[in-house]
Amino acid sequence: MSADTTSTAIGPVEGGAHYDVDNPAPYIEAPRKRTGKTPRATRGNFEMAAWLFMRLSGVVLVVLVLGHLLIQLFLDGGVSKIGFAFVAGRWASPFWQVWDLLMLWLAMLHGANGLRTVINDYAERANTRLWLKGLLYTATVFTILLGTLVIFTFDPNIR
């Protein structure tokens, strides 16, 4: 090493992990290597359908959500008008029932699919991935079912 090299030349590491014959470095399996554990190629269109769904539902949601916000927060006195009577009045019409149902399903599936890709991209271990996705799917199914049940079985005369 010549004189014009500054500092930190690599030398033996003191006290650090030092691999040798008796203490070999951990073997790291190369990605994309064909092993017994490599899953078979999936010849389905699920990923394409999911990708397409994100685009299409996004476009529809822009209309649905902006319309929803406009009606709930700005028109006719804004947020102060919202009460049991207001919701009951709206859900008397099949149009708003369909609007809210569509918004519920599209928003939940859109968000769940987005989180699914985030988990796929960021969760490193297979177990973490499994649990996070399990939690995500449970929450999604619960919310969708509960919301659908409320929209269809809503009773304005409830006491």
Binding site: D4, T5, T6, S7, T8, I10, P12, V13, G16, Y19
Partner: peptide, 18 residues
């Protein structure tokens, strides 16, 4: 960024002035 698996399992930044 230098890395030599025969010396250390960590990589080190090394400066060279040329």
């Amino acid at each position: 960024r230098r890395f030599n698996p025969e010396v250390s399992d960590a990589s080190v930044w090394e400066d060279f002035q040329i």
